[in-house]
Simulated assay, not measured.
Amino acid sequence: MHRTYRGRVLATAPTVLAEDEWVPVAEEHRRAVEALTAGHRERALAGEPHPVEDFLFTYYRFRPGQLARWHPGAGVVLLGAAARERLAWRGYARWAGPDGDVDGPGGVVVDAAGVAASQGRRLGHVRDVVAATRGRAPELGCFGLHEWAMVHGSAADPSVLRHERQPLRLGAAGTDAVVEEGARRGWLRCTHVDAFRFYPGSAVELSPLRPARDTQAALEQPGCLHAGMDLYRAAFLLVPLAPSSLVLDAFRLARDVRELDMRASPYDLSRYGREPVRVETSEGRAQYATEQRALAARGQALRDRLLPLLDAVVVPAR
């Protein structure tokens, strides 16, 4: 059962949390995020970038302060003076209370209908990709060669080096040889558009797949590291409808994905304490596939949590 307030649907029987119940949870979340992001924030002040740990904030544009701001998610009413401050935040509205009095003491709740109206069409593509990927088995035969393919031909064109301050473990010629062997053996099968778009022309020619935005839902698969990392984007696009516990779990997965992605890359990251996953060897490929499988399982569990939220806000195309 629902009531409407100024055209917006507000649930009348949600979970109601007193201020002394939800404020400690919000503080615990803030402290957890601050601990996870301390290194990034310190490096940002010092102007010292980190090729592994800073990526999520340079690529996804969701700031540490935004991640630290706790949201209960849909269907939870927050009571107290601290809750009323959220009326100035995007995506919150007054809750009318069980008696329907919007001018009474009430509380504050996520404005699910407002979020749907503002974000629904934008999230349609995200929902299609997440749902299609959830329905597929992971493919584990790429061995992270997308990062190698991105720097194919770097001896002739150094501009393809995305982390130019980090040396290549095998040098330019050795890196090219790994890419070319991978192409011959059918391992160079990147399914992710936002990895493939960084391929130089020489690597594009070696790739049997040409992922594009309009084929993303048809090609994306849960074994892809970048598909798992992008669940963080899907989660924070749903804020404040998505609870912060979900967003933080997606962030932690994305951090772990980035670690494997760069440890298996052609770059020498020993100065950052990262031991390589040597995918140029059979042992390294086996290690990569084992870690990839575990990350894929975590990604599928997150998709199970994301899909009901996406289904609730996506506005069908007309």
Rank of each mutant, 00 (worst) to 15 (best):
M1T: 14
M1R: 14
R3V: 12
T4C: 10
Y5M: 07
R6G: 07
G7R: 13
A13H: 14
V16F: 11
L17E: 13
E19F: 10
W22G: 10
A38D: 13
A38Y: 06
G39P: 10
G39T: 09
A44I: 03
A46T: 07
E48S: 15
P51I: 09
V52S: 00
F55Q: 10
T58E: 14
Y59L: 11
Y59F: 13
Y59N: 10
Y60H: 13
F62H: 13
F62C: 10
G65F: 05
Q66T: 15
Q66Y: 11
L67G: 08
W70N: 03
A74Q: 12
G75N: 08
V76D: 01
V77A: 10
L79T: 12
A81Y: 07
A83K: 02
E85H: 12
A88I: 05
W89N: 06
G91E: 02
P98A: 15
V102Y: 09
V102G: 04
V102F: 12
G104T: 00
G106D: 02
A113E: 14
G114S: 06
A116T: 00
S118P: 06
H125P: 07
R127G: 07
D128K: 08
V129Q: 04
V129N: 04
V129G: 04
V130E: 00
A131I: 07
A132G: 05
A132L: 08
P138C: 12
E139K: 06
L140Y: 07
G141Y: 01
G141D: 09
C142E: 14
C142S: 14
F143I: 04
G144Q: 05
G144F: 03
A149D: 10
H152S: 13
A155C: 03
A155R: 14
A156H: 06
D157H: 11
P158I: 08
P158A: 09
P158G: 09
E164W: 14
P167F: 03
A173W: 08
A173D: 14
V178K: 01
V179A: 03
E180N: 11
R184S: 07
L188E: 01
L188I: 01
T191K: 03
D194W: 12
F198H: 14
S202H: 08
E205W: 02
P208E: 08
P208K: 02
P208I: 03
A212I: 00
T215E: 06
T215M: 00
G223W: 10
G223N: 08
C224L: 06
M229G: 11
R233K: 14
L237K: 15
P240C: 08
A242P: 08
P243C: 02
S244A: 12
S245Q: 14
L246R: 04
F251Q: 07
L253C: 07
R255T: 01
V257I: 05
V257R: 00
L260R: 02
D261V: 02
D261S: 08
D261M: 09
M262L: 15
R263G: 04
A264L: 10
R271P: 10
R271V: 15
Y272H: 13
E275V: 15
R278A: 15
E280F: 10
T281D: 11
S282D: 15
G284T: 04
A286M: 10
A286H: 12
Y288I: 01
E291T: 08
Q292L: 00
A296E: 01
G299E: 01
A301M: 02
A301Y: 00
L302I: 04
L302S: 01
L309F: 05
A312E: 12
V313M: 00
A317S: 13
A317C: 06
